[in-house]
Structure formats: structure tokens, C-alpha cells
Simulated scan of single mutants.
Amino acid sequence: MSAAHDGVGGPAARRRFATLGRSVALFQAFLVEQTDPDRFYGLLADDSVRQVSGYVPLAGRTVLDVGGGPGYFAAAFRAAGARYVGLDPDVGDFSAAGDSVAGMLRGSGTALPVRSGGVDVTFSSNVLEHVSEPTRMLDEMVRVTRPGGVLFVSFTPWLSPWGGHETAPWHYLGGDRARRRYQRRNGRPPKNRFRETLFPTSIAQTLRWARGNAEVELLDALPRYHPWWARWVIRLPGIREVVAWNFLLVLRRAGAEPDGAAEKTELTGGRVAM
């Protein structure tokens, strides 16, 4: 049985999944993101579905993927039995989706064209850092999630080694300087342009939003690609912005909990520093 069909396994199963070998495989695939996107995004999609399945059963659930892109996640979520709806502002990404384009929406993450409480799970992978108003997007994701539903949001913090994306690691010297350097060396601007299509989003900012929002409960906060025994880095303000590489926030929408509702882990439980 594939990872996408494993279902909810609880904290012990999530630890067995988050191994060092899995982390190494993800980082190796990351090195070929530009040259072999099918390998990288296919692996990331399968890995993400397995992570989400560790918190909530996906079979029969409606999943809204904010920033769904060219369809890799569509195939993985549908293989897990979910009713998948992808949303992306760039119609060009849809053209790359092939058969996965069915069920896709064109729209903005900060003004989701979805009715309130209309989906069971909202998912977003590596999109939040590309939004000028990240908390507005998070608010919208909360709005469209039904009570008891789950939000699964990950992004690359600005101070991460990959925070500047293709301009990294020069973003540590300033986003504008890194952008100019990239253009000089490549004869074109980067795809991820500082304060246009890439913004300095932080873990601390996102945790403050989560702690201050009465409509959600924090289920988990962890470095997305790290092995389970490295989760403690999220408890270290400042340091986590650099070493987490990619931050994952798992939330439950406040309200009545359905059967198979997500469970809070022992890690967060109200003890993650902001």
C-alpha cells in the first residue's frame, strides 16, 4: 500500500515516517528542482499527502490546495481518496497540469472564491512567502474550512538558507541586493523578486497569528523536511528561522469535531515560543 493510503497513524506513526532517510531523499530531490521538476514535485506531493494523512483521514474529504500549481498534488491527493480542488492565480500553471486540470480554480489566495466552511482540509505548500499579505491568506483559509476541519500550511522562512529562493544565499545581504546580483549574472530578473513575488515571512509572525486567532487550535508546528527528532528547533526563537529550512503549521478550525478529527501532538500543546 502506498504512503498516500496509510490513513491516520497518530504521533508514533508520524515519527516512523519522519526518518533521516526521508529527509535525505527530499533534500537530494531538492537539488534537481529546476532540472527535474517531475522528480522533485512528485516526491514532495506524495510526502505531503502522507504528512496530512498523519493528522486527518483523507478518503472522502474535500481538500482545497491554495496555490495548487501544475497538478502534482492533485494526483497525490486523489490517489488518497480525497476530493481535490486546486486554486492558483496563474492560468499558465494549469496548462501544465494535463488531465489534473479538472477541478482547478483560478483565483487569489487572499480572496478565495470558496464559500465559508466549504472544505474539510485546506492545504498550502510553499505559497505563503509569495503573498504580500500572508495573514490575510491564512484568515481566508480559516474562513473556508469547516468547523473541526484541518489547515496544513508550509512555507520557507526568509532567514532560511533557501529564503531567497534562486537568489539565495545572497538574500542574507538584503533582498534587493540579491535580486540585482542575480540579474547581473543571469541577464534577467529572478522569478522570485523581492517584495514583488517573494516576501520576508517569518515563523514568529505566523505563530503569533495562530496564537492570537480564536478560530483555530494549534495542532503542530515543526520543520517540515526534518526528521522527527529535530522538531525541537521550533522551540528556539531566532534560531528556528534559519535552521528549520521550511516551516509547517497544522491547525484545527474551532467548532464541533467530526469523527476522525485531527489530534493535537505532545510537541506543541501550547508550548511553542513565539
Rank of each mutant, 00 (worst) to 15 (best):
L112S: 02
P57M: 01
D38L: 10
A261I: 09
E266N: 08
R146S: 10
R184C: 11
F77K: 06
V121D: 07
G98I: 09
D46H: 11
V131D: 02
R179K: 11
T62W: 09
V144H: 07
R136L: 09
R83T: 07
H130F: 00
I203N: 01
T35A: 12
G98P: 08
N186E: 13
G69S: 13
V127C: 03
M274L: 15
A80K: 02
R193W: 02
P237N: 09
F30Y: 14
L173Y: 04
A75N: 06
M274D: 14
G255T: 13
V250A: 05
A244P: 08
T265Y: 03
S125G: 08
G260A: 03
L138R: 04
R106I: 15
A18H: 14
M1P: 01
A75T: 14
A79C: 04
F247Q: 00
V8I: 10
A13T: 06
G212A: 10
T122V: 15
W170K: 04
M274I: 15
A168E: 06
R193E: 14
G42K: 10
V119N: 03
V8Y: 13
A256D: 14
W229M: 14
R181C: 05
W245M: 14
T206W: 01
T135H: 10
R231L: 08
L219Y: 06
D99L: 13
R271T: 12
A261S: 14
G255A: 09
Q205G: 07
S2P: 10
E215N: 11
L64W: 05
L20N: 02
